[in-house]
Simulated scan of single mutants.
Amino acid sequence: MTRKRLMAMGTGSRTRAAVLAAGALLLGTVALPGSSAAEPRPQAVRISAGAPALAPAAATCDTGTSLTPSTDDSGPNVQRIRKRGKLIAGIDTNSDLWGFRDPATGNLQGFDIDLVHALAKSILGDANAVEFLAVPTANRITALQSGQVDVVVRTMTITCDRLKQVSFSVPYFDAGQEVVAPKSSPITGLDDTVKGRQVCAATGSTGLDLLKANLHGAKVFTVANQLDCLVQMQLGNVDATITDNALGAGQVAQDPTIHLVGGLLDHEVYGVAMKLGSTDLVRRVNAAMQDFLANQWTAEYSKWLKPLGASPGAPVPHFAG
């Protein structure tokens, strides 16, 4: 996106969204500095509750259970991280509340960023022993498969298809897909009101899969990262977005002219992703996750995710194997 087009968007929250999106495009997959402790100041937004509007596909796997935790550091994957002296984490840099660079300071902030620091503290004894790499939505799995990163902590939904490609920790957040649209729009959800309209979703996202399966006559518009959809809505290039409600809330927090509509379309859970078969690392991460969910999750929700509404409480971890 050109500087001229970004400047045309004006000031305030829209400029912030554009700066975040442009920064992510420029960063690609490069190492980034650590986060600050500053809290965001987003507006309060509504998160729909109740049953999903679309019946989810029949489950063919257990997305809520992961390997039994272990603090044994002798496994090959954990040893590689410890010998290196840092955890390499694939993260997002343009999702408000979750993982973003503060335009004023250049520091990384958000719930997922703090989770990475907690993993580093548990595995390496140093919360700052982290190298962050910005990874686009579509590149999350290949970044793990190639060994470019040790973990991906990027609001990544655990799905049966993805479990065939990567390994996951226990879930750390419950979410679901929802439609984001301008308040002035007649769009009421993923229904016939999107017929003939441009609907945006990130490549490689579960939102894109859901949209393609329930088009209702919509035209699909794809981008590399979900915040790019917000910029495209602001520029008038798309009419609506499908994304995780938790990410949609971040978009709404940045731009008060848009809102979440139609209610939840499905139910999803986020997990920390690792290379398929890295059993020792999965167990070690789950040990850190067990502590994070029990002792830190509530404070992190209050710090970052209050715009989503009252805390639902940390997910209860389930282990097997």
Rank of each mutant, 00 (worst) to 15 (best):
G34F: 01
P42S: 05
S169D: 10
F221M: 06
T193G: 08
V238Q: 01
D161K: 15
L133A: 04
N128G: 13
G217T: 06
M156Q: 14
D96M: 12
G309V: 09
D244L: 07
A118K: 03
N77I: 01
G262V: 03
A138E: 13
L144M: 08
T137N: 14
N77K: 09
Q226T: 13
L305R: 06
C61E: 10
E268Y: 04
R101D: 12
L108P: 03
A314K: 06
G217H: 11
T65K: 04
M289I: 11
A58V: 14
A288Q: 13
G248S: 04
D112A: 08
G10D: 05
G313P: 07
M274F: 05
Q79P: 04
N237Q: 11
E300A: 08
L276E: 07
A320K: 06
A218C: 09
G28H: 06
A299Q: 12
N295S: 14
Q296L: 06
D209Y: 06
I242C: 03
A240E: 01
L115F: 10
D150Y: 03
T105A: 13
A246E: 03
A314F: 07
E39R: 15
R41P: 04
G125L: 09
I123N: 10
G248P: 03
L235G: 10
D244Q: 07
L108V: 11
C160S: 12
H259T: 14
T60C: 12
L281A: 12
T71W: 01
P40V: 05
S311D: 15
H117I: 03
R5H: 09
F319K: 05
I158H: 03
Q79K: 14
R162W: 09
G110C: 12
T11G: 06
M289D: 09
R101F: 02
I81R: 01
G28M: 06
T257C: 10
A37P: 00
I141E: 15
A213D: 14
T105P: 10
V78G: 02
P103A: 11
S48H: 13
P40Q: 04
Q177M: 08
A24S: 13
V135Y: 09
L230E: 02
M7P: 01
V261H: 02
T157F: 07
A273N: 01
L97R: 00
D92I: 06
S35E: 12
T241Y: 00
R3W: 06
P69H: 07
D96S: 11
G23I: 13
G106W: 15
A31D: 09
L305A: 02
K306T: 15
T243E: 10
W304K: 03
Q296R: 14
A55T: 13
L260I: 04
P312S: 08
T159I: 12
K275G: 12
P76A: 09
L144G: 04
G85A: 10
S205M: 04
W98R: 14
R197C: 07
S36F: 01
